[in-house]
C-alpha cells in the first residue's frame, strides 16, 4: 500500500507509473491502425506540414476543422479518445492558457468591451479583440499539440529517433535522446528496488530527516552507478567498432498508401491555405 504522505514513496511511485504509462503508450504505436501503417518519415513530414499550417491559420473555423481531423485520425488509428484527450490537454494550460489570460484584458489588448469586471477594486474589461485573439491562440496550441501527441502515440519512439537521424538531426543529439530513453527505465527500476530494500529494513514510517538522508544516499549511489555504467557502455561501443560516429539502418519502405496520404495532405493544405488567404 502506498503511503501518500511520504514524499519519497510518492515520487518513486509517480516515476514508476510514468514508466508503465510509457510502455502502455507504446502499445498504441504497435496497434494496426491507419497512422501506424504509414511510413514514419512520410507521417512525420505531413504532421509537420499540418503544424506549420495551424501556426499560420487566422480563422478559428479552420482550426476547429483541423482539430476534428486530428480526432478523426486518432479514432481510425485505434487511439482511445479519453486517453488521447488526457494526454494532449495536460500540456494545454502549460503552453497557452497562462499566456493567453492577460491578452483577454484591455490592458494588453485594447478594444471593444465584451465583459466588464472589478477584481480587488481594479476595473478590468475583457475586450472582443482580446477574447478572439486569445481564443485563436489557445485553439492553435490545442490543435498543434494534439497533432504532435498523435504523432508520438502512433509512432514507436525508436522509429521517431530513426526519422530524426534520417533527417540529418545531429547524431549526438539523437543518440543522447535514445540512450536517455533506454537507461531511464533501468535507473527507475534501480531506485525502486533500492527503496524497497530500505523499506524492508527500516519500515515505511521513518523520521523525515532519516528520509532525507536516505534520499541523498540514494541519489549519490545512483550517480556512482550511472558514472560506472557510462564507462562500461562506452567500452561496449568501442568493442563493436564505434569511433565517434554512429549510423542508422534506414529500412523504411514507402507504399502506395503513403503516397495516397501525401496526396490527401496536399489537398487539405491547399484547401486550408485557400480558406486562409484566398
Amino acid at each position: 500500500m502506498i503511503n501518500y504522505h511520504n514524499f519519497i514513496e510518492r515520487s518513486i511511485t509517480g516515476a514508476l507509473s510514468f514508466l508503465k504509462e510509457s510502455v502502455f503508450a507504446d502499445q498504441y504505436a504497435a496497434k494496426k491502425g491507419f497512422l501506424q501503417s504509414l511510413d514514419p518519415r512520410i507521417k512525420t513530414i505531413t504532421f509537420m506540414v499540418f503544424i506549420v499550417l495551424i501556426i499560420f491559420t487566422k480563422d478559428i473555423r479552420v482550426l476547429f476543422f483541423m482539430y476534428a481531423l486530428c480526432l478523426l485520425l486518432g479514432s481510425i488509428s485505434k487511439i482511445n479518445l479519453w486517453f488521447f484527450l488526457r494526454r494532449s490537454w495536460i500540456f494545454i494550460p502549460l503552453f497557452s492558457i497562462f499566456i493567453a489570460i492577460p491578452a483577454l484584458f484591455n490592458i494588453v489588448t485594447p478594444g471593444e468591451t465584451l465583459v466588464a469586471l472589478k477584481i480587488f477594486g481594479i476595473k478590468l474589461t475583457i475586450t472582443r479583440q482580446g477574447f478572439f485573439g486569445a481564443s485563436l491562440f489557445v485553439a492553435r496550441v490545442v490543435t498543434s499539440v494534439s497533432f504532435a501527441v498523435l504523432l508520438t502515440l502512433t509512432t514507436k519512439h525508436f522509429e521517431l529517433l530513426k526519422v530524426l537521424r534520417i533527417f540529418k538531426i545531429p547524431q549526438i543529439f539523437v543518440m543522447t535522446l535514445g540512450m536517455c530513453y533506454r537507461y531511464i527505465f533501468l535507473f527507475v527500476e534501480i531506485v525502486s528496488s533500492t527503496y524497497l530494500a530500505v523499506k524492508s529494513r527500516v519500515g515505511s514510517r521513518i523520521h523525515y530527516r532519516t528520509g532525507q538522508h536516505l534520499a541523498a544516499w540514494n541519489i549519490a549511489a545512483l550517480w556512482q552507478r550511472s558514472y560506472r555504467l557510462n564507462e562500461d557502455v562506452y567500452n561496449a561501443m568501442l568493442s563493436r567498432g564505434y569511433r565517434g560516429e554512429s549510423f542508422a539502418l534506414n529500412d523504411f519502405r514507402t507504399k502506395t498508401k503513403d503516397w495516397l496520404w501525401v496526396c490527401l495532405v496536399v489537398i487539405i493544405s491547399a484547401g486550408v491555405s485557400y480558406f486562409n488567404y484566398g
Binding site: H157, F158, L161, K162, G178, M179, Y181, R182, Y183, V233, A236, M237, R240, G241, Y242, R243, E245, S246, F247, A248, L249
Partner: peptide
C-alpha cells in the same frame, strides 16, 4: 544501449 534490439544487433557492422 540502443533503443531496440534490432538497432543493437546492427550497431557493430554499421560502425565497421
Amino acid at each position: 544501449f540502443c533503443p531496440t534490439v534490432k538497432e543493437d544487433i546492427v550497431f557493430g557492422p554499421l560502425a565497421l
